[in-house]
Design a protein around this nucleic acid. Sequence first.
DNA 1: CTCCGAACTGTAAGCGCTCACAACGTCATC
DNA 2: GATGACGTTGTGAGCGCTTACAGTTCGGAG
Lengths: 345, 345
Amino acid sequence: MTVTEPHRARGSRISPARPTMDDVAAVAGVSRGTVSRFLNGGHNVSRSAREAVERAIRKTGYVVNQHARSLVTQRAGSVAFILSEPQDRLFEDPNFNNLLRGCTQVLADHDITLLLTVAATDADRVRIGRWVTAGHVDGALLISNHLGSPLLGDLKERGLPVVVCGRPLGHERDVSYAAADDRDGARQMVEYLRSRGHRRIGIVTGPLDTSGGVDRLDGYRDVLGAADPALVVSGDYTQASGEAATAKLLDQAPDLDAIFVCSDLMAAGAVAALHRAGRRVPQDVAVGGFDDSKVATTTTPSLTTIRQPWMRLSAEMVRLLLARVDGEDPAAVLLPTELVVRDSA
Amino acid sequence: MTVTEPHRARGSRISPARPTMDDVAAVAGVSRGTVSRFLNGGHNVSRSAREAVERAIRKTGYVVNQHARSLVTQRAGSVAFILSEPQDRLFEDPNFNNLLRGCTQVLADHDITLLLTVAATDADRVRIGRWVTAGHVDGALLISNHLGSPLLGDLKERGLPVVVCGRPLGHERDVSYAAADDRDGARQMVEYLRSRGHRRIGIVTGPLDTSGGVDRLDGYRDVLGAADPALVVSGDYTQASGEAATAKLLDQAPDLDAIFVCSDLMAAGAVAALHRAGRRVPQDVAVGGFDDSKVATTTTPSLTTIRQPWMRLSAEMVRLLLARVDGEDPAAVLLPTELVVRDSA
DNA sequence: CTCCGAACTGTAAGCGCTCACAACGTCATC
DNA sequence: GATGACGTTGTGAGCGCTTACAGTTCGGAG
């Protein structure tokens, strides 16, 4: 066990007292108030003052102290993006990526920074709950909320503006949320499978403690009624679980001719499992996915799936959150989903 | 395009003025100072006062205002974990995951929150630079620093404590960093391949603007000298790039009998490319990976690779960062790597 | 009974900023 | 020349907290 220390430079101690607004004001030859006005839009600041302040800021290397500002404005200028998932799922599931990208972008337009925190364990959730309510952020985007997770209740109770992605089971009435119309998407897919002549249609659901899990199953049942229970198996959105669930399905109902798999990642696993079992896709068994993520196009055959409007979902979440921050009442938005036909069904 | 609004509850406007320390003090019948002392360790607080304050806090639902606290302590209680990568890589590469998990955990022991920010674009980098230096965090962990990226220089210049993961090319002397001994790891792998009788050993390097990229190539050259340039191809750590690079390698040097692929993910791509080209692994071409990530065990055949000490790396990064925050000089740590023999070589 | 130190508690001075307010020209208007 | 309006500026009062510092109390030693 060698730990070497290549260097230990002679060193510049940290920041020799960082400049404040008073320093800038002194250098510019104006008052603190003028500097502040300049920083906050520059209204009612004369041209000469403005230029002097600009020079002074450059000269001193001044950066606003956000704590001092937040203390008086009562605004943090950032929101939390809370991923309440075991960490490996975060890194496997491309949907988080889409959402993250979208929200970052939309928030940036408002000059608000997004802070991603991963709440993988219960201890994490407690720490994050405390951190978030200590005023660090103006609000929180809760991604992937599971039934029974105490985080949502905690945050809501403390009065923190929250927007949930997906229907927040048990909190539909008092928490803002944006969701894709999972139920309708599922209906579209199952109806499409039926229209192609399939009659024994299995389903690999998502986790049934999330709205995506239950709503897609409901959509399936809307079309098929309370189908043969042997045709229903649950997964957790990972590829491995899709593979395992499909194997189980084949075992319970060897005569099935189509499977609606509630995420593309699981569908990729399903295709692998079917392949292994010697069933051709789509000739022997058709496969329908959900999400229209990248994997839908890279899988062989490419996946017929349901497109989720990630970008609009992100935009709506941010809009709803900022509305809540401004004191508006909770509201909900449901966005349409769309069937995308490819080769697997 | 239907956007429906399922509900718009009558509602509770935001927090009716959240309680301050004075409120707690009043309820508890003590002074603000006592409440503060209680909150900060509870030294010199009598048992009765402590209990009264505890009750008052529970009753009022008081949560400390972090901005006010930070304003006086000059500490934010959080550090940034800056991923300076296009976002898709973030979600593909399991190494980030390991590092994130490790750092979160170690920081949690110090009751410090980790804030993940993704700096995918140059605009992001500017915004994050500003945000980070505005006092939001006490320091930053810079992951995956590329040569020529201005972020590191920016942060350093502003006096923000920074620790880089991997050798910060061009800043080795004045910035703290923790790195695995990439060069030695590469040497171990190439020597192992030679010891197994391989003589035409190709290499798929990482990006050559990162220390991991150049150091592993240097290690390869330490053993083999300035080898045939046809045996050297670069990738970007993604699976797809490993596949492409290997195809190119096979084209340039069809007689090679081993490939050192500088990440497991790329190695998985290499195995696929070899398979497609009709070469057996390891009988026709041996493959060595790097990282010992999960994919090393799931690939068929499982990958002989170099283990990186992620947990220790995380711990050292955090230690170095906290040291810098405390005003210590920059320092560097180099951690040993280890050969893990499996089936691919 | 006095005195001293230890344990505890209250007080007040900020941390760096924003924002209402008052004060100041300066100009056009009466 | 007095008046008011307006653009510009400085001033000061906090935002909610920490932390010296200065009491205060109380027990035990002298």
